[in-house]
Amino acid sequence: MREGTYIKQPNRALQVYAIVFLIVLYLPVLFIPLFSFNDSIYVRFPMQGLTFHWYADLWTRDTVWAALKNSLTVGLWVSVISTCLGVVAARAITRYQMPGQNAIVTFAMLPLIVPGVIFGVALLVLVSRLGIPLSLYTVGFGHLIICLPFAIATLLPRFEGFDRSMEEASADLGENGWWTFWRVTFPMVAPGIVASLLLTFTISFDEFIMTFFLSGTDTTLPIYIWTQLRFPREFPAVLALSTIILALSFVMVFVALWIGRLGAVRDQVKATNEGA
């Protein structure tokens, strides 16, 4: 079924453009998995045949496992902490009238806009002046600054869409603040929290520039890839590792956006609730 209004009549040229656009958007990234199965150390056509050799090779490298462990550890901590910080911020901003709350939100969003290099060197200067040795902790703190705007941006609409009268109804029905949070507030914002956890984890897992400036001897996977890029013979292994990271990111983000979409459906319910 198509909507036949004059304005919305199908435009063949645009449709073709859209499809080409999507192909161009995805194609470059798809070359990475493609060549990761190529039986040659050269990334070039014609391809030499299918192999899983590069993946098997990765499996045996202790440095990869160590970097993976570091990435996961940092990612888990950063996603949990940044989501918690995002929850209290979103809750405070939507629940209370505070002077300067817009300024705070804008300030928290700075890392989204300001080039990562600047925050990287600024934090590097801070920790070095404080005499803190570079470690996974400094990396985690850097990631936290990058992830926080994403957590807040994901959670704020959920808390904004949250209807105050829901909590009042709960209080009216005999539940105190604690139980109201667990029985009403939390379940209603849960999609936002899960989405925030997944997105911040992915961002931390993929983060490069902060890690580049703030990591000590322990590295994460993106840094490992960066160091391996200098060696042409390591290219296929890097491709294999990149494929794994890409696949993981795609799945996590797709789930996050899908859950966010469930939240959007609930918003519609709420809208009909109000509009009925």
Binding site: L25, I32, V43, R44, F208, S249, F254
Partner: peptide, 30 residues
């Protein structure tokens, strides 16, 4: 979601992908 999904994946790897494509012996040249 389709239009924004790639953005969430590693920036480093997306840039790296272009190196694979544009390289001296890369996808386009070969």
């Amino acid at each position: 979601v389709l239009m924004t999904l790639p953005f969430w994946t590693s920036y480093l790897l997306r840039v790296f992908a272009w190196r694979v494509i544009l390289g001296y012996e890369g996808v386009i040249n070969s």
